[in-house]
Design a protein around this nucleic acid. Structure first.
Lengths: 224, 224
DNA sequence: AAATATACTTACGGGTCGCGAACAAACATG
DNA sequence: CATGTTTGTTCGCGACCCGTAAGTATATTT
């Protein structure tokens, strides 16, 4: 999952960067509104965290202009505690949630997770698809009661697939959501991870939980 | 489905080319207005994506002159962000939708898909014809609940036929919509694909879902 | 009925794409 | 700093898909 963070206080910016990285997100950063707007229109983020008091272009405008251009990604705004009225204006501008500074890391993470879930139409933190069960809180994947040990990136791939069942997910799409800005799109990492996942999910090779559609992408098998 | 892209920024042009190719469209390119106008009057595109700021002949003129010559194909115009007022003039000139640069790839694809659907009078992403059901999101075809595995080109042929039921579709028409400019029209690929489709759709040969009208083309059987 | 045109079938080659194995690099851990 | 794990690259093999071409069948015309 890929997140945009727009915040001008550089201390807080790096803090958010490391925090989100630690929790497995890919992060792009902006320290002013112009840049934030550019990034959010150019890349498919799963969440954007935007401070209201940004230089060059304030957070409200970033959101409004992004929404004008039909950017659908969930937006979480940050406001100073003594400016809580701003939350109303922010939500009007098209934000989805807000948080007043200062905040607990856990609080932020929880909101982010909630937004991602809501966006994918999953109210529940446990995503199921046939015998597959993915608990997004504990990051555990089980297949037919058998629990699997996934590495961080294996988890990311699986997570994205489970969030988009019944859909053909191209390798580019996966790459764009799992890595940040500058990553070589011609790499074959995705193929490698799909391979590793298949081996773990289905060592004997009779279930075929991940289907390949030549030239188009991957899809979770519907008959499991 | 075949698309014309008219854009003078060569970076963006190639980006659009690859993006659309990745998603299974045939693409013709123009980097100036004159060429764009020539191509759009000469070929049956399913969508045209036209930048307003084209050299030699601007996007407005391309659209106006094309409409004068009764070119009916849906047009999506691209405008710079700070020129978003142009959208009004563009829509007046005969465009069907607009998008401001920069934009999300996903956004563009969504618009293109919507235009194609709208043009064929299909509001719904699932096209049905008798026992045939084609989901344009997952690219899955089912016939009487039985799901078929189609290859990329088999899908394209089927898609075009389903978008034009009750109509005789000639081989040339199919070729023109499925391939781009330089493709040998004397080839018999279409016949081959029709054959492959028939075998998959109707292995026993009693339904005859695709009829041949000798000398004129093919049509989906109306009594299914 | 023969000749011709059109469509269908089949088989094959070229090329692309995806997969797996092995290796290298980056990172984490003690 | 040494060791083990995770991540990402390279490369060769194999499978699949596309398009061609040649031969066969079926319709249409003469």
């Amino acid at each position: 999952m890929r997140i945009l963070v727009a915040e001008d206080d550089s201390r807080l910016l790096t803090q958010l960067d490391t925090l989100l990285h630690q929790h497995g997100y890919s992060v792009d950063l902006a320290d002013n509104g112009q840049n934030a707007l550019y990034l959010i229109t150019e890349n498919p983020y799963d969440v954007a965290i935007i401070d209201i008091g940004l230089p060059k272009l304030d957070g409200f405008d970033v959101i409004r202009k992004a929404r004008q251009q039909e950017v659908g990604c969930p937006v979480l705004i940050l406001t100073a505690r003594d400016r809580w009225q701003e939350k109303v204006e922010g939500l009007d501008a098209g934000a989805d949630d807000y948080l007043t500074k200062p905040f607990h890391n856990e609080e932020l993470l929880a909101r982010v997770k909630a937004l991602i879930r809501r966006a994918s139409g999953q109210a529940n933190p446990v995503v199921e698809h046939g015998p597959l069960k993915l608990d997004t809180v504990t990051e555990e994947l089980t297949i037919a009661q058998r629990q699997l040990e996934l590495t961080a990136y294996e988890y990311k791939v699986m997570h994205y697939l489970m969030m988009n069942p019944q859909k053909v997910v191209s390798k580019t799409e996966l790459t764009e959501h799992i890595y940040d800005q500058d990553f070589d799109l011609d790499s074959n990492v995705i193929e490698v991870f799909i391979g590793r996942l298949r081996k773990k999910l289905d060592p004997d090779g009779n279930l075929k939980p991940i289907e390949t559609l030549r030239g188009r992408g991957y899809r979770l098998s519907r008959n499991l």
